[in-house]
Amino acid sequence: MNHSNEIAIGFSNIVFGLVFLMVAASLLTWIERRLLGFWQDRYGPNRAGPFGVLQVVADGIKLLFKQDWIPPFADRTVFVIAPAIAMITVMLAFAVIPVTPAIGIIGNLNVGLLYFLAMSSLGVYAVVLAGWSSNNKYALLGGMRAAAQMVSYEVFMGLSLVGVVMLAGSYNLTAIVHSQQHLWYVVPQFIGFAVFFLGGLAETHRLPFDLPEGENELGAGFHTEYSGMKFGMFFIGEYIGIILISAFTTVLFLGGWYGPILPPFLWFALKTGVLVAFFVLLRAALPRPRYDQFMAFGWKLMLPLTLINILATGAVMLCWSTS
């Protein structure tokens, strides 16, 4: 293949991917509110445009035209950088997702999984720095909570994937999907699936694990002082994070693009969509735990569970290969 052609395709992939992600994330804000509405016996935003879909546009315009205020007591540089980090890390993580064998930026990266984990670890900086630079006690508490929460849950989030890696024998995400052609890993690795999903919830600090921004205790937590589009970037970053975790769950446990009849892209989208909807359902249904309960849940239940899972997987694989 022509080298320059390859660069052009890669570049268009990147541009298309970014646009698609932005649109999807902003649509997701509308979808979430409509779904929450339905689950709470009401309509949700339904006035602007068909089914209220233009609400997204209205919100975007509003956010852009809001006063972009930086508190005089804030650490200016860090305050501005923090939301950018939030967006950039989740978007970069998308680079390694193989949507289909053809769609994707570097789905074939041989350390794809490690790259994803690395990116999601970097994401914690956004929250911590936002909380720190705001120079506000609620923001700082939110940032500290986020740091503790994300560092803790990252541990077994990573560990939960060890089973998958062992089964697939590769960190290459395309290879992992290929290895699920006959059996989705959600069946042999159900514990891994569950732990990864919960870890993902914690990582995106979505309800019910949104302790860093628990509004009844901390105002709005780490983004208390943020307004206008900077707040918008945290907001969009969070929604892209939801898509990211859902997409990774699809890739790692639900067989990626594999499925009968429908084209591979639609299968991927469908699986991811259901997971996204589940994210929203969790928000609609579950209350937020207390912080100490939440940390205890991670360290005292999830961590042993993943370790057992790894042990069991290893044992089964050992038995399998020897028999």
Partner: peptide
């Protein structure tokens, strides 16, 4: 809880 919440999808508004 999740299930009952989900069922509200089909309730009257």
């Amino acid at each position: 809880t999740l299930w009952y919440t989900f069922l509200h999808l089909f309730h009257r508004k």
